[in-house]
Simulated assay, not measured.
Amino acid sequence: MFKILIIDDDPTMRAILKRALQNQSYDVTVASDGEVGIAQAQQIQPALIVCDWMMEDLNGLDVCRLIKANPKLATTFFILLTARQEVEDRVMGLDAGADDFLAKPIDINELKARVRAGLRLYQLNQDLQAQKQALETLNQDLQHQKQLLETELAEASSYVRSLLPTPLIGSVTTESLFIPSAQLGGDCFDYYWLDNDHLVFYLLDVSGHGVGSALVSVSVLNILRSQSLPNTNFYQPSAVLKSLNDTFQMSDRDDKYFTIWYGVYNRAQRQLYYASAGHPPAILLAGTTNLQVKHLDSSGLPIGFLPDAMFEQDVISLPESSTIYIFSDGAYEIPQPDGRIWGKEAFVQLLVTSHQQNTSLKHLLSQLQVLNHTHNFADDLSIIKIQFNV
């Protein structure tokens, strides 16, 4: 039931208005002057106020201003009773905050109609306020969930980074870059000694981005690091890729597949055995005065495409002063302002130049960031540099 407050210093008018509105089943309260009316309004917080303009002490305009200035009463629908007919008077009333006018002498049917219209507008305003509050609450909840998610993603990102290997020093030295396009990406890499003479190093790139891709990459890293693939010779890259393909079929992994370049270096014989599953070729740079550039590639579908896929393995003898770069396609598939993709050939040339100038991967990254033209790369970007000193 709507609450209505009548403020009028004429007792006869108060009685007429109260009776007419009570007959419409409204909860009606009356006040005999402006001060009492304001006190009543603060107490009952009515949906609608009918107030006479001409009253002693506080007139209707003053009451209206004070009512509308109270945040708890600002949405109350305010009707001024007035015998004034001039446009200037109505402008004064509207400026004071009045929502409607009712001319004297009062027609009861018009009174009832204007009250119904005012209450409809009041209810609409209340509904909008409720919806606004609900949206604000929902937004606060979403912001809270967003903060929780960002915290969890940051923790997950820190965990993934903690799994990446520390740089090698000695006869073989390493340097690496790991730049996910989002907090979590699908790239991952590792290198470690199988024994005193055999070094494993690989880089993989899972399709997609985000949590799902990161989970797959971490799973592969942990399985390879723990050498828990059954019946697998980890000294043979082709055997490792076949076992990975048997384990990570995309039909069982939410359609996630990955590319990988995997190599095993025999330090005693200075030979590198390697295999690739749909991954960009590693780049071998050898020599000092006459720099040799060789693409280390082998055929093979990405891991997870076909259950019975086979993978070829190649071997190469590493000359003295050899360096190998392994990278994901995010290092060169960089969109340019003219719509072209920067491309692998340009990236390899940048590698050669960087190698000849003996600059770090961080310097290389700064050049790629200039080429990228935006803050974040469109795809995950990972590079590992392996330098064979002996």
Rank of each mutant, 00 (worst) to 15 (best):
M1N: 09
K3C: 01
I4V: 15
D9A: 10
D10H: 11
V28D: 01
S32F: 00
E35M: 11
I38K: 06
A41G: 07
I44D: 00
A47I: 00
W53E: 11
M54Y: 12
M55Y: 07
D62P: 00
N70C: 02
K72D: 12
L73G: 02
V91L: 15
F101L: 11
F101Q: 09
K104C: 05
N109S: 14
E110P: 01
G118S: 02
L124R: 07
D127A: 09
D127M: 06
K132M: 10
K132Q: 14
A134H: 06
E136Y: 07
L138S: 13
L138C: 04
N139K: 13
N139L: 12
Q140D: 11
Q147I: 13
Q147T: 15
L149P: 08
E152K: 04
A154D: 15
L164C: 07
S171E: 15
S171V: 10
G186W: 04
L194P: 03
D195Y: 05
N196E: 15
H198W: 09
G208D: 04
G208K: 04
S226L: 06
Q227I: 00
S228R: 10
N233L: 12
F234A: 06
Y235V: 01
N245R: 03
R253F: 15
D254M: 13
D254E: 14
F258D: 08
I260A: 11
G263K: 09
N266Y: 07
S276I: 04
A277M: 09
H279C: 10
L284E: 05
L296T: 06
G300H: 08
A309I: 06
F311Q: 05
D314N: 14
I316K: 01
S317H: 07
T323H: 01
F327M: 13
E333T: 04
E333W: 04
P335C: 09
R340E: 15
I341G: 03
E345H: 14
A346R: 15
S360F: 10
S360M: 10
L361K: 07
L365N: 12
H373C: 11
T374Y: 04
F377N: 03
D379I: 07
L381F: 05
I383Q: 05
I384P: 00
F388P: 00
N389L: 13
